[in-house]
Nucleic acid binder design. Structure first.
Lengths: 150, 150
DNA sequence: TATTGTTATACTCTATAACTATA
DNA sequence: TATAGTTATAGAGTATAACAATA
């Protein structure tokens, strides 16, 4: 019964596409591993590192953090609580709307975020294997893949 | 003070590399989103879907699942418990070593795993934007990036 | 009334350490 | 004694629902 063989390829997926998808899966796996490691190097969880990185680019209301991370706003309360307890983030009032709290990195938080970003750039350097031309080519392909955004 | 500007680029990262890294980050984000969505479509968590997908390729001892997922073996107990409670996975004795339990998908589990894989192949089809030649090129670049493995 | 952030609750994932049954 | 799987525990992330303050 060929239909119960685990490796029966999906009808619409040609072998080339399947292989590219698998390779992307590996890149995703590596990226995550290295991201978690880098976060752990600063005693942060992945979620905490993502929030800190986001606020490092631009302070923002709690609600917007949740939108960026695609999770419920109630979760952000706890994550920012823990970052605040470590002195990496602070909550500021929004002069324009007293309901809103703006989360922003402290000086130390900014330092950690910078260090995190740099260690990530280093960690992600399987790119070092590629020549300048190849990176240009890869950039173009990824842009096309991701469509009209960014 | 230029040194405290959030966007000061890391000394060693040229703009091209930084952009490629950012693009890879976006691919990673999309991939994850779509993976979680596909899992949720079957009322599975991401971790449960990963374990089921792994066992679909090849049944294996609990311990090896943990190695594959790079987590502690004690976590696998709970994940397999929940998959077993839903009738998607079963634990079989290993004739060769009575300490070992082999986890394997049931018939229904295999169906779910197949459906999950297919919906992922579908979801991951931002690749459809690329021509055959471009996919070949992307495959080559990803292979080089990932080094001598796979 | 609607919105922002929070609290309360319950579930899952995670690591650590101690336990059991085998080897 | 060493290993496979489990249990117990505690911390973190997640969604849901209800709440206070403000708009």
């Amino acid at each position: 019964m060929a239909t119960s063989d685990p490796r029966t390829p999906s009808p619409r997926a040609d072998p080339l596409t399947v292989e590219v998808v698998e390779l992307i899966g590996e890149v995703v796996g590596r990226y995550h591993e290295e991201y978690e490691e880098a976060a752990a190097g600063h005693s942060l969880t992945g979620a905490q590192a993502r929030v800190l990185g986001l606020l490092f680019v631009e302070p923002m209301p709690m609600r917007r953090i949740a939108q960026k991370l695609k999770c419920e706003p109630s979760n952000i309360t706890g994550i920012v609580d823990r970052l605040e307890a470590r002195g990496l983030v602070e909550r500021r009032p929004d002069p324009a709307d007293r309901r809103v709290k703006l989360a922003a990195p402290t000086g130390e938080g900014a330092e950690v975020a910078r260090s995190l970003r740099d260690s990530l750039n280093f960690a992600r350097e399987p790119l070092a294997e590629l020549s300048h031309e190849e990176r240009v080519s890869l950039r173009g392909l990824l842009r096309r893949m991701l469509g009209g955004e960014a």
